[in-house]
Design a protein around this nucleic acid. Structure first.
Lengths: 372, 372
DNA sequence: CCATCGAATGTTTACGTAAACATAACAGCT
DNA sequence: AGCTGTTATGTTTACGTAAACATTCGATGG
C-alpha cells in the first residue's frame, strides 16, 4: 500500500530532469533534486513485504539465531524480490565501525609498497574489511599531515602506514583516538606496532654470501639520504663487514631509481678494486648492471652484484640477478592480522614482527677474479 | 605526557593475554565491551559548548553562508577544543552518498594497473573522494562476481573497473542501480563508459617506426591468448603491416612476464630473418633482450626490439629500450573525471576516451644489418 | 491448572548529520 | 507606522540500522 504510493509518487522521476529544467526557467520553482533516496529498498520495505517487523529483518540480515526457518525464508524471499542491500552507512553509524582499513603510502612506484598493499587488500577482504587508499604525493611532513587530516574525516577503523616513521611522528597527533595504527618500517621502535621484512638479516645474508664467495670486501650502493630504510640497510652492511673483520669501502648513494643506479655504477666501475656490490634495491642493481656493462666490466666474472627485493623482473636481468627476496605478501598479511588484533584488543598490542628475508642465488654473483 | 601515559598503560600489553583469561574464569562478569561511543564529540557537543544550535555547527562544518563571523569563530573554537570530526557514516547516511569510488582490479603486478590506480587515487582525493580497493585474486567470472557482490554492500558511489570487459559482463547485473561504472579497456564498446590508452595507435607507431628504419617486416611477441588487450595489440600490429604491404610473420606468444619473453626470445633468435620484434609489453621485451643476448644476437645491430608501456626501468635495460609510452596517469585522471561526470549527470554519459600513446626512442632499435 | 520459562517476534529508541521548515531581528520602503 | 524582504539562527524531522527492552505464546514442571 504504502509502497505503491511511493512508487507512483516516483513515476515522474525520470522525466523530472527535463521537466525540472523547463520548470526552472518557467516558474523558478526549485525542483526537488534528490531522486536518490528511493533507489534502494530499506529494511522497512522488506519487513512490510514479508509481513514481519524490521527488527526481524535485521536479525536475518545479520544471521542471528532466534528466527524460525519459516520466517527466515519469507524474509529472504522479500529481500530478493526487492533487491535489498544493507546500507553500510547506516550500519556504520549504528555499529560505530566502518569495517574499513585505510592504507597510507607514498607513490606506488616501488614494488614493495604495491605488493604489500595488494596483500593487505586481499587479507582484509578475507576478514570482511575493505581497504581505502590514501596516496601521499610528496613525502614531506606537510603532505603526510594532510593525508592524515583527510583520514580523520574518513570512514576508517584502522590505518596501516607504509612509510617511514619519522615522517609520521609529527602528523600522528591528530588521529582519532580509536583508530589503530600499524606501521611498515622496521625502524619504528616499540612506540608503534610494526611489521616489516627483516632488513638487517637480509642484508647480512647478502654480505655474507659475497664474503663466502671469496670477496675481500663488499661495496654498497645505498638508498637516498633521508630514507631510514636505506639507512638501516647501510648500517647492517657496515656492521656485517666489521663483524667479519673487513673494512667497509666508501658508501655510494642512489635514490632507489635505476637511473641513479646507473650513475653510481659509472662511478663504481672506475674502482678496479671493487669486485662486489650490494645494491639496496633491484632497480638500482639494474642500472648498475648497465653501467658495468657499458664500462666493459663483466658481471659476475669481474664484478659480483647483488640486489634487494627480488622484483619479478630480477630473474630476467642480464645476468639474472642474485638478490634478497622480501616476502611482501606475508608482510601485508601480518599487517592486517596485527591491526585486527589491536581493534579486537586481543593478543599483543605493540611490538615488532619481522618477516625473514631469504637470499635468492642467480647468476650475478661469483668468486672474485683474483681467486680464479 | 600523553605519550608516557599511553606507554605505561600499554606496558602490561604482552601480559594482558593471560590476565584477561584469568579474569574471565574468576568472575564471569560480562565486562562492558563498547567503550567506543564516547570517544568522539558530536555536533551536539560542539553546539552546547559554543552556545548555538547544532544546525549552526553543521553550517559552519559545511562552509555554508549565512553565519556571522563572530558565531563561526566561536563554533570553530569549540570544534577545536573538543577535537570534533564530522562522522562520515552519519554524513553518508544523511546525504545518500559516500564520496568514495571503488576500484576493481586484478593483481597489481602490472605497472599499468598500478599507475592507473595511483592516478585514480590522487585525482579522487583532489575531488574529495576516497578510493576503496577491491582486489580480484583470480580473473575468473566467479571471482569477479564475488568482488561485485562484496561491492554491493560496500560504501561506494561509483566503480572504476581496470579489467577486461568480457569478464565483467556476466557479473554487472547485480550492481545497485545508482552506482556508476567506468571501465579501463578500450575494447569495451559503447555499452560502457570507457577510458584507455590508444593501444592501436601506439602499436601502429611502433610498427611504423621499425618499418621506417628499413626493416622488411616486424615480428610480434604477443600477450596471452585470453587477453583482449593482447588481442588488440596483435590485431593492430597485423593491420599496420598489411596496410604497409608487408607480410606478417607468425605470431609468438608470451604471458606478459619477463620469463615468457625469454622463452619466446630463444625461439625468435633461431630465425635469422628476424630483424625486428615488437613486444606487447616491456617485461617481455626484457626477457627477449636476455634471450637474444644469450644467443649472441646483438641489439640493436642485428635485431631491433621495441616494447610497450615504458615502465620506469625501461631506460635502464641493456640496451635502453625503445618503447611505446602509455600515459597511465592521464588515464586514471580521466577515469575519475568520467565517473564524476556520470554521477553528476553532466556531459556525455557514455563513450570511449582514448589517451594517445607516444613512441619513446632509445637504443634498442636501429636499421637492419642488411641496409648498413 | 497455574506459575514459570524460553523462544520468537515486535516496539522503542538512538546513532550523528543536514534538509526543510520556522522564527526572530532588523533594514528599507511607502 | 506598517509592510516586505533579508539575514541569522533555532527546531523538527528523517536517513537505515540494530541494541535494548517489551510482548506474546506455547511448553514444562510442580
Amino acid at each position: 500500500m504504502d509502497t505503491v504510493e511511493r512508487a507512483s509518487a516516483n513515476l515522474p522521476g525520470p522525466v523530472t530532469e527535463v521537466a525540472g529544467t523547463a520548470r526552472e526557467v518557467a516558474g523558478g520553482t526549485p525542483a526537488p533534486r534528490r531522486t536518490r533516496a528511493r533507489t534502494t529498498a530499506s529494511m522497512a520495505d522488506v519487513a512490510r513485504l514479508a509481513g514481519v517487523s524490521s527488527q526481524t529483518v535485521s536479525r536475518v540480515s545479520n544471521g542471528y539465531a532466534g528466527v524460525t526457518e519459516e520466517t527466515r525464508r519469507q524474509v529472504l524471499a522479500a529481500m530478493k524480490e526487492l533487491g535489498y542491500r544493507p546500507n553500510s552507512a547506516a550500519r556504520a553509524l549504528k555499529r560505530g565501525e566502518f569495517r574499513t582499513i585505510g592504507v597510507i603510502t607514498f607513490t606506488l612506484s616501488t614494488t614493495g609498497n604495491v605488493r604489500t598493499l595488494e596483500a593487505i587488500a586481499t587479507s582484509a577482504a578475507a576478514e570482511g574489511y575493505a581497504v581505502t587508499l590514501l596516496p601521499v604525493a610528496v613525502p614531506t611532513q606537510d603532505e603526510v599531515r594532510g593525508a592524515f587530516s583527510r583520514l580523520e574525516e574518513l570512514a576508517v577503523d584502522a590505518v596501516i602506514v607504509i612509510m617511514e616513521v619519522h615522517l609520521l611522528d609529527a602528523a600522528t597527533v591528530t588521529l582519532p583516538p580509536h583508530v589503530q595504527v600499524v606501521v611498515v618500517d622496521s625502524d619504528a621502535g616499540d612506540h608503534y606496532t610494526v611489521v616489516d621484512t627483516d632488513q638487517a638479516g637480509g642484508t647480512r645474508a647478502a654480505v655474507q654470501h659475497l664474503l663466502d664467495l671469496g670477496h675481500r670486501t663488499v661495496w654498497h650502493l645505498g638508498g637516498p639520504e633521508g630514507s631510514f630504510a636505506a639507512q638501516r640497510r647501510t648500517d647492517a652492511w657496515r656492521a656485517a663487514l666489521t663483524e667479519a673483520g673487513r673494512v667497509p669501502p666508501p658508501l655510494v648513494r642512489g635514490d632507489w631509481s635505476a637511473d641513479s643506479g646507473y650513475r653510481a655504477g659509472l662511478e663504481l666501475a672506475a674502482h678496479d678494486e671493487c669486485t662486489a656490490v650490494f645494491a639496496a634495491n633491484d632497480q638500482m642493481a639494474l642500472g648498475l648492471l648497465r653501467a658495468l656493462h657499458e664500462r666493459g666490466r663483466r658481471v659476475p666474472d669481474e664484478v659480483s652484484v647483488i640486489g634487494f627485493d627480488d622484483i619479478p623482473e630480477a630473474s630476467s636481468f642480464l645476468p639474472p640477478l642474485t638478490t634478497v627476496h622480501q616476502d611482501f605478501a606475508e608482510v601485508g598479511r601480518l599487517c592486517v592480522q596485527a591491526v585486527l588484533r589491536k581493534m579486537r584488543q586481543v593478543g599483543p598490542q605493540r611490538g615488532t614482527t619481522l618477516v625473514p628475508a631469504r637470499l635468492v642465488r642467480r647468476d650475478s654473483t661469483a668468486p672474485p677474479p683474483s681467486s680464479v
